[in-house]
């Protein structure tokens, strides 16, 4: 061994130089890539894309949080969550178009209806399966998802057609040196940040939040400590649904076309975002969602045929992150106790 090391003493410098050349090449490559992107269509276009990406990311975050909280507590990939999001969009649509409600009452109503729906679903479909194998609950979630999609697609419910969503306010666009910012963006950001702050407060500063965190860590022990675990789980589903409902309204405002199957892809993307950030981690879900939104919009803006390939890239990012860090960006490595 020592002889090998000694013989390498002279090429050592060379090898080190090669390694550093690679480092520098990587750095330059990334920088060049960013510069090339900016120059491709001009910095205004680039910044606009980033901004749009963030806007989409904020909406994803609202859905992703529901996924991540539910997964954190009952280890269930709640496939029906995307459809709750859809119900939120439709509720606000009816409130706004038929009853001429304003934005705030509409979003509150959407949140309320979603909460009600999700709690009922949890009680009826998931609670009886609490002690069943996890796959049973997952299949049930898939079933609930199908049910929500196809039931609402019936003619006398929402119908299966694309419906144009009427925004409850006039769109105002400000032009800042070529970058267009609409009041939609402002509303999305403000609403999302507000909801996230409330969520943060609930999870970290209230008794219920403490109970949630305890339940996520260890259900039997939490129960022994006198925590009403079933109540906590219902509450978690309710919180997730409220956020998803708000997300549905905001998404519909940003992309004003709704259909009962609209929840599938955003739901899936938001879920991927939650996983990307490290599932069970609220901060992770938020960061992952912003990343996901950015990838979506940047691919559409800069990749040739990007609008057709965006889903492919979204999942490519997921798989790359998995290969580098298998539990997501903020996820803690799983150590199995032996």
């Amino acid at each position: 061994m020592t002889s090998i090391t000694r013989s390498l003493a002279s090429p050592k410098v060379l090898l080190r130089a090669v390694a550093w050349a690679v480092y520098i090449a990587l750095g330059v490559g990334i920088l060049w890539g960013v510069v090339a992107l900016v120059r491709l269509q001009g910095p205004v276009f680039f910044l606009q894309a980033v901004l749009d990406g963030l806007r989409l990311g904020f909406v994803y975050a609202l859905i992703a949080l529901g996924y991540t909280m539910v997964y954190g507590i009952v280890r269930l990939i709640n496939f029906a969550h995307g459809d709750i999001f859809m119900v939120g969009a439709f509720t606000s649509f009816y409130a706004i178009t038929q009853y001429k409600w304003g934005f705030f009452p509409a979003i509150l109503l959407a949140m309320f209806v979603c909460v009600l729906l999700n709690v009922v679903i949890e009680r009826v479909a998931y609670k009886p399966l609490r002690n069943a194998p996890r796959i049973a609950a997952l299949i049930t979630a898939i079933g609930v998802s199908f049910f929500l999609e196809y039931f609402t697609a019936l003619k006398w419910v929402f119908s299966a057609d694309y419906i144009t969503y009427q925004r409850p306010f006039k769109v105002v666009v400000w032009n800042i040196k070529g970058i267009l910012i609409s009041n939609i963006t402002v509303i999305i950001v403000i609403t999302t940040v507000l909801l996230l702050l409330i969520l943060r407060y609930i999870v970290y500063n209230t008794r219920m939040g403490k109970a949630m965190r305890a339940t996520a860590l260890d259900k039997p022990t939490a129960r022994l400590m006198g925590i009403n675990v079933d109540g906590v789980i219902s509450f978690t589903f309710a919180l997730g649904a409220a956020l998803a409902g708000a997300g549905g309204v905001l998404y519909a405002i940003a992309f004003p076309q709704i259909v009962t199957f609209m929840g599938i892809m955003p739901g899936l993307k938001a879920f991927v975002a939650a996983v990307l950030g490290g599932i069970g981690n609220i901060m992770g879900a938020f960061v992952g969602s912003l990343l996901m939104g950015m990838v979506d919009v940047l691919v559409v803006s800069f990749v040739p045929m990007g609008s057709r390939l965006r889903d492919l890239f979204a999942f490519l990012v997921l798989i790359i992150v998995f290969l580098v860090k298998p539990t997501g960006i903020f996820g803690e490595p799983e150590v199995e106790k032996v």
């Binding site: 280890r75 990939i77 899936l268 879920f271 991927v272 996983v275 599932i279 045929m305 057709r308 390939l309 889903d311 492919l312 999942f315 490519l316 997921l318 798989i319 998995f322 298998p326 539990t327 799983e334």
Partner: peptide, 26 residues
Amino acid sequence: LLRLGSDYFGIATLGFAVMMYTALQN
């Protein structure tokens, strides 16, 4: 992908399926 834990593997393979679907569309 098989080195990933069970749920992560499921999600990664789901990602593969969606990628395949998008690829087929194009």
